[in-house]
Design a protein around this nucleic acid. Structure first.
Lengths: 110, 110
DNA sequence: TTGTTTCATTGCAATATTACGATGAATGAC
DNA sequence: GTCATTCATCGTAATATTGCAATGAAACAA
């Protein structure tokens, strides 16, 4: 079906899954890494950084923006993107709250 | 096309994207949370915990296993699943190494 | 005005994912 | 041996994702 039964899960489960989905593509990881590296707004050269067509990059940027990982603001004729630092910290905590709930040195599975 | 250009990105970018993809579904988040909660091997009752058919749950378990997040070992007539604790810590670090590369209190984007 | 640049959006084709019924393989009970 | 239980796999239908060419929309230069 290709249709996720989102209504059958909690909001928190769906939220974390959506955040993971936003990061579930190497191009989007590459975009995030580039934005982090330059540590500033990036206007325009993202298409040059990636081995993808302009339309495809724009689509990935829209998904990252929809997930709240990045912000974009118009600057004259170009658009500048950067990490949404406030949300970034929140998202980091969302992932950590799952990772840290498990597997201390004493956990004895299987 | 639906075909990701994996060859155009680094192994590390593809690896992290694949880990994120494994977590990019609320059912798989729910499975991980349940395995964490009981902190032990779970044999059989996973299907009862989820609002999905047995075949669907099995498919999700296979993806989590392929990504290395969980382990499964046969125990008589049933199969037991649990978090792969060693890999879990490694995966945690992979995510943190991205999250912690950005956005200290002084970062001044946009 | 016309042209240029920059990015978003549309439309499409190829592939991937999700879900489930049906079936299969393996184990244990009897 | 038969039968039930448990889980994996196959096949299939519905939907989602990925990628790109083509086209728009907005800002600026001349």
């Amino acid at each position: 079906m290709g249709l996720t039964k989102t209504e059958a899960f909690t909001d928190q489960q769906n939220d974390l899954a959506n955040l993971a989905k936003a990061m579930a593509h190497p191009a989007r990881i590459a975009i995030l890494e580039h934005l982090i590296k330059v540590n500033a707004c990036v206007c325009g050269d993202l298409v040059d950084e990636l081995p993808l067509a302009q339309a495809t990059v724009s689509q990935h940027l829209r998904e990252l923006k929809a997930a709240g990982l990045i912000k974009g603001n118009i600057e004259g004729t170009s658009v500048c993107y950067c990490i949404d630092t406030d949300r970034w910290r929140t998202i980091r905590e969302r992932f950590l709250s799952l990772f840290d709930r498990c597997c201390g040195p004493d956990s004895s599975c299987c």
